[in-house]
Computed example of a mutant assay.
Amino acid sequence: MSKKALLIIPPERFNEDELFHPKEALENAGIEVTIASTKTGEITGDYEGKATSEVVFSEVSATDYDVVSVIGGSGTNDHLWENQELQAYLKQAHNDKVLVTGICAGAVTVAKTGLLAGREAACYPVDVQINELKANNVEYVVQHVVAHDDIITGDGPDGAKKFGESLVKALR
């Protein structure tokens, strides 16, 4: 049975490196990737890159996937950080033993679920994200990737390839 990944991007302004590098790593490892958002259709990234959201995340079961990943970008702060439906979705995925991951602002989205309370995580090294981690009782660490058995966080574009590799390793 082949593995599947659900990559959740904001409805606008996702970070291209944070989406495309992990997607490539997963696909090169034979893992089927689905891109999701809060809407379907073409979405423009921070740097005018394009991606197509195939599904609305809330309309698919997280248990159909081996990993659910929240991708960063400036739109993640605006559209996903306070999305209660997404927070509930990530908590349910975690309860159902689906690997929950986030990179950059996506790591903050995961932290806001409470799943990382009392644990270490990576995020983009800017005060607004670091302060959000701390506000959710998460210890910020300066690393490209922080991998727990059940949750993986990444720092951003510079660590996007390593983040993708860590997802592949965790799914083996």
Rank of each mutant, 00 (worst) to 15 (best):
L26G: 08
E27I: 01
E27W: 08
N28D: 13
A29P: 02
A29E: 00
A29N: 04
G30D: 09
G30I: 02
I31S: 03
I31Q: 01
I31A: 05
I31K: 00
E32W: 13
E32L: 12
E32S: 05
E32I: 05
V33K: 00
V33Q: 03
V33G: 02
T34I: 14
T34Q: 00
T34Y: 09
I35V: 05
I35Y: 12
I35M: 12
A36G: 08
A36N: 10
A36K: 00
A36S: 08
S37N: 03
S37H: 01
T38D: 02
T38I: 09
T38Y: 08
K39M: 06
T40M: 05
T40Y: 07
G41Q: 01
G41N: 03
G41F: 10
G41H: 01
E42F: 11
E42H: 13
E42V: 12
E42K: 15
E42C: 11
E42T: 15
E42Q: 13
E42P: 04
I43P: 00
I43H: 00
I43N: 00
I43R: 00
I43C: 03
T44M: 09
T44R: 04
G45A: 00
G45E: 10
G45W: 00
G45C: 02
D46L: 12
Y47I: 13
E48H: 15
E48A: 03
E48V: 02
K50H: 08
K50G: 14
A51V: 11
A51F: 13
A51W: 14
A51E: 06
A51Y: 13
T52L: 05
T52H: 07
T52A: 04
S53H: 07
E54T: 08
E54G: 12
E54H: 05
E54Y: 05
E54W: 04
V55T: 04
V55D: 15
V55E: 13
V55N: 02
V55L: 07
V56G: 09
V56E: 14
V56T: 06
V56A: 04
V56R: 03
F57Y: 06
F57Q: 10
F57T: 06
F57W: 05
F57R: 15
F57A: 07
S58H: 14
S58C: 07
E59S: 11
E59T: 08
E59G: 14
E59A: 08
V60T: 05
V60G: 01
V60I: 14
V60K: 13
V60R: 11
S61H: 04
S61I: 13
S61N: 11
S61G: 06
S61P: 02
S61V: 11
A62R: 08
A62K: 06
T63V: 07
T63Y: 07
T63I: 10
T63F: 02
D64Q: 06
D64V: 00
D64K: 07
Y65I: 14
Y65S: 07
Y65F: 14
D66Q: 06
D66P: 15
D66R: 15
D66Y: 12
